[in-house]
């Protein structure tokens, strides 16, 4: 079953082009030219793409209403970054932000990230080198042997967080604060120790990690 996307864009040229591109990528698109009726149209959608500048209700208002009605549905805003206040206002409820003129491939990539994060996309198991992981569940298996790898609570939280941001480089502060829920203190080795144990369980050669990559000077990343 394909993913249904609510797309609100007042410009017909852009709307036509983006809708066509998304349909080619096997998304079902519900395109509206204004925010009116967006709440009803969002029923059954897994993702919403909203333009900020809309006739009548603006994208922020529509987005806030959608978020209240469908808190689990990710929202991607399309607009200019010129007014940074708008960006902050937009990100209060929106999950991501893309500035025009965007490349269709970039839009598709962002959508995939959002869908994966919300657990809508990729319901199928995902191959990561020699591992099979099922996003949204705690199951991590060795592909060859089918042996399940048991992770501790914290190890699983760290690995899940990295998987939710697949391909993104995350700083130590971001990971620590997302997993432990408290401020990261510079020099704290807790995260490093947990990553080391995690690698011992996940990597074929923990000394040359392939799953959890260290980005020197910044943090860690799991490549997609």
């Amino acid at each position: 079953m394909s993913v249904t996307v609510l797309y609100v864009e007042d410009d017909r040229d852009i709307g036509n082009a983006v809708s066509a591109d998304l349909r080619e990528r096997e998304y079902a698109v519900r395109w509206l030219e204004s925010g009116e009726g967006a709440l009803e149209a969002a029923e059954g959608c897994q993702l919403a793409i909203l333009d900020v500048m809309l006739p009548g209700l603006d994208g922020f208002t529509v987005g806030q209403r959608l978020k209240r009605a469908y808190p689990d549905m990710p929202i991607l805003m399309l607009s200019a970054r010129t007014s940074i206040d708008d960006k902050l206002q937009g990100l209060d409820f929106a999950d991501d932000y893309l500035t025009k003129p965007f490349h269709p491939d970039e839009l598709a990539a962002r959508m995939e990230v959002l869908l994966r994060r919300s657990g809508t996309a990729a319901p199928a198991p995902m191959m990561l080198k020699h591992l099979v992981v099922r996003p949204g569940s705690s199951v991590v298996m060795e592909a060859a042997s089918g042996r399940e790898i048991m992770l501790t609570g914290k190890q699983f939280q760290i690995f899940s967080y990295l998987l939710r941001h697949l391909g993104q480089v995350l700083t130590k502060e971001q990971i620590y604060e997302a997993v432990w829920g408290e401020s990261y203190m510079e020099g704290d080795k807790t995260l490093m120790v947990h990553i080391r144990y995690l690698r011992e369980k996940l990597e074929l050669d923990p000394a040359a990690p392939e799953i959890i990559e260290t980005v020197r000077g910044i943090g860690y990343r799991v490549r997609g």
């Binding site: 852009i14 591109d21 200019a80 010129t82 007014s83 500035t99 003129p101 490349h103």
Partner: peptide, 25 residues
Amino acid sequence: RKRLVADLSHDLRTPLTVIRSHLHV
């Protein structure tokens, strides 16, 4: 002023987005 800038930004970007989409096609 912000509204003017935002409108200008929107009006300038919209055709660029359209062109980019069509270039992609």
